[in-house]
Write a protein that binds this DNA or RNA. Structure first.
Length: 632
RNA sequence: GCUCAUGUAGCUCAGGGGUAGAGCACUUCCUUGGUAAGGAAGAGGUCACGGGUUCAAAUCCCGUCAUGAGCUCCA
């Protein structure tokens, strides 16, 4: 099961059947892509077009062109598009033979307004990709002819509500070895009203962007001089992170996990054994070579290339910033003689790992170079795999339910039957895949099974959510691993008094705290539930006359562990409320003459507004209940 | 890493070859109030960094770094 979005963005050919299933709006968007191409061909007749499919919220067309299209060009392009729409050209389908199509492409006629003295290079290539048995068709609108299987709307006049969104680069057919094309993204709707609604939605979504909210609320900071993708958690963000850790840690204690601590680095040999080095060298920080070895190499006049080889071949030793926690945990497991009676062993750690992500991939808290996984490794027998997976999913469920996250999808990554790249006994794979499938169905959440999506070492379940701009991010994951126990020669003594190989399960219900916090910020729009809110209560004295009674209330709150503060500024109450609202503080307590006289506090909630007056004891009781229950 | 865009005060942004701008935030003073902005004054910048062109560069050019969108990648 692969969804349409993935199909459209991937570069696999759509089958005719899939094309016939195109929704009305997809058809419209695909047609608008042709209108875009027509406009570009008018302005730059030499443009070479590749593919122009509909995508989730619009369409794009890939074009090769010496002129660098920038957003400044959009106005002119849109103007030409409007003309094409106004001319209300008919989209006309013409079936042609392969030879006819090829001839047209060779005379530059495809993706163009007329014959040219250049070939339609990409169209020729695309033509060659069309299977023998498939019909070949040309679509014409006005003088613009294009190789296209369709379908299209009847006339260009149907494409009246569109907007060009952005320009980016894309490799032809998604292959980095192919030429880089300019990809122009646009969106289109049935009418202007729907288009405007969509654009407004986009604006609304941007307000929730965790990077924006995180800055406004002072949760985290990235500093140029610290480095790309390296998060500085500010005090308020650290509170959220700590609360999440306390929460999960508490759950781990209930579920029979043992929490451990391990260092952030390990010897290269460790990662040679695990296979991370040099197999995943590209995505790791370079090794740290110890001082003496470095000096010795320098004295020998060793070049960087030679050093790299020596490291790979194990002639020179060094340390690696850990890209994963598993090797360390494995060493804890293997540090003792294990009996089957000890299993499962569940080792958990909030483990910080380091990965050398390419600079262009980094962004906000969702993709960073140093992040902390709520990681654990379970060592169990084959018979225990099913139960352990269920236990892991229970934990993920508790986490997501507690935080009210419902908008996620579950992906079961299975092996590709035709491939032999997988390690481990096929029978065990079958069992593990069945166990994962069964576990996933027990979630009562839609899930997709995707073959070929397994890791080479075992099948997995991923929990995937979308961010405000519609990008998908993997959060929690549960993965079965047959590889590392083998590589590290792990064993336990079975009832038969013989050594047996344990199975490992990697799991992280949050994935990484960084990415998870990003998702939470966007989910709550910065208005965190009280138990997570960096500042839970703010006392607002009506005037400075009431500082002393207000301070008493503040101290009572601090006494019971509330994160509370007082706004004692010379502002009027309206201004103080406004500030507290902007800071998204859940509770505002107003103290003035009335409250002092009756020994009450007036409570205002950031979203429920004025709640009325309560006795201080009543408020504290309610507050503590809310925090204890992690109410949403 | 690649393509394009962006980088001006703590934040949001205007400006632009000839003395650096606004709003908010900040500091001080006045005001002491009742559920989303009371008033005044003040302070704050090597215009990301490094080169170049120029009598003169924040402005133009080149490079670097960082940010954003997309592509590729993602154990």
């Amino acid at each position: 099961m692969v969804n349409i979005h993935v199909m459209a963005e991937g570069n696999q050919r759509k089958t005719l059947e899939e094309r016939s299933q195109m929704t009305d709006v997809e058809r419209l968007r695909h047609s608008t892509a042709h209108v875009l191409a027509t406009a570009i061909a008018k302005i730059w007749p030499e443009a070479q077009f590749a593919a122009g499919p509909p995508v989730e919220n619009g369409f794009y067309y890939d074009v090769e062109l010496n002129h660098r299209i920038s957003p400044d060009d959009f106005e002119a392009i849109e103007k030409e598009m409007t003309i094409v729409v106004k001319e209300n050209q008919k989209f006309e389908r013409i079936d042609v033979s392969r030879d006819e199509a090829l001839e047209l492409a060779k005379s530059g006629r495809l993706g163009a307004l007329g014959e040219r003295d250049i070939e339609s290079t990409f169209k020729i290539d695309l033509l060659n990709d069309i299977p023998e048995e498939e019909e070949i068709s040309i679509y014409k609108n006005g003088d613009f002819w294009d190789l296209c299987a369709g379908p299209h709307v009847p006339r260009t006049g149907n494409c009246k509500a569109f907007k060009l969104m952005s320009v980016a680069s894309a490799f032809y057919k998604g292959d980095a070895n192919n030429p880089q094309l300019q990809r122009i993204y646009g969106t289109a709707f049935k009418n202007k009203t729907q288009l405007n609604e969509y654009l407004e939605q986009l604006e609304e979504a941007k307000k929730r962007d965790h990077r924006k909210v995180g800055k406004e609320l002072g949760l985290f900071h990235f500093d140029e001089s610290v480095g790309q993708g390296l998060v500085l958690w500010k005090p308020k963000g650290s509170i959220i992170r700590n609360e999440l850790q306390k929460f999960i840690s508490n759950e781990l204690d209930k579920k029979g996990y043992s929490q451990v601590f391990t260092p952030h680095i390990g010897k290269l040999d460790l990662y040679r054994t695990s296979g991370h080095f040099p197999y995943y060298e590209e995505s790791q920080f370079s090794p740290i070579v110890d001082r003496d070895s470095m000096q010795k190499l320098a004295d020998e006049g060793c070049t960087c290339g030679e050093l790299s080889n020596k490291l790979k071949e194990g002639e020179t030793d060094g340390f690696l910033l850990k890209p994963m926690n598993c090797p360390h945990h494995i060493k804890i497991f293997s540090s003792e003689h294990r009996s089957y009676r000890d299993l499962p062993v569940r080792l958990a750690e909030f483990g910080t790992v380091y990965r050398w992500e390419k600079s262009g991939e980094l962004g906000g808290l969702t993709r960073v170079r140093s992040f902390t996984q709520d990681d654990a490794h379970l060592f169990c027998t084959d018979d225990q795999v099913q139960d352990e997976i269920m236990g892991c999913l229970d934990l993920v469920k508790v986490v997501l339910n507690t935080l009210g996250i419902e908008d996620y999808r579950v992906r079961v990554g299975l092996r590709d039957a035709d491939s032999n790249k997988y390690v481990g006994d096929p029978q065990n794979w079958d069992r593990a895949e069945n166990a994962l499938r069964e576990a996933a169905s027990s979630l009562e959440v839609p899930f997709t099974e995707e073959s070929g999506e397994a890791a080479f070492y075992g099948p997995k379940i991923d929990f995937v959510v979308k961010d405000v701009i519609g990008r998908e991010w993997q959060l929690g994951t549960v993965q079965v691993d047959y590889n590392l126990p083998e590589r590290f020669d792990l064993n336990y003594i079975g009832p038969d008094n013989k050594p047996h190989r344990p199975v490992m399960i990697h799991r992280a219900p949050f994935g990484s705290l960084e990415r998870f916090v990003a998702v939470l910020i966007e989910h709550f729009e910065g208005s965190f539930p009280t138990w997570l809110a960096p500042e839970q209560v703010r006392i607002l004295p009506i005037s400075e006359k009431f500082t002393i009674p207000a301070e008493e209330r503040l101290n009572e709150l601090l006494e019971v562990g509330a994160r509370a503060s007082m706004d004692n500024s010379a502002e009027k109450i309206g201004a103080k409320i406004r500030l507290a609202q902007l800071d998204k503080v859940p509770y505002m307590l107003i103290i003035g003459a009335n409250e002092v006289e009756t020994n009450t506090i007036s409570v205002r909630h950031r979203s429920r507004g004025d709640i009325g007056s309560l006795s201080p004891e009543e408020f504290i009781n309610n507050f503590q209940d809310e925090v204890r229950n992690r109410a949403l």
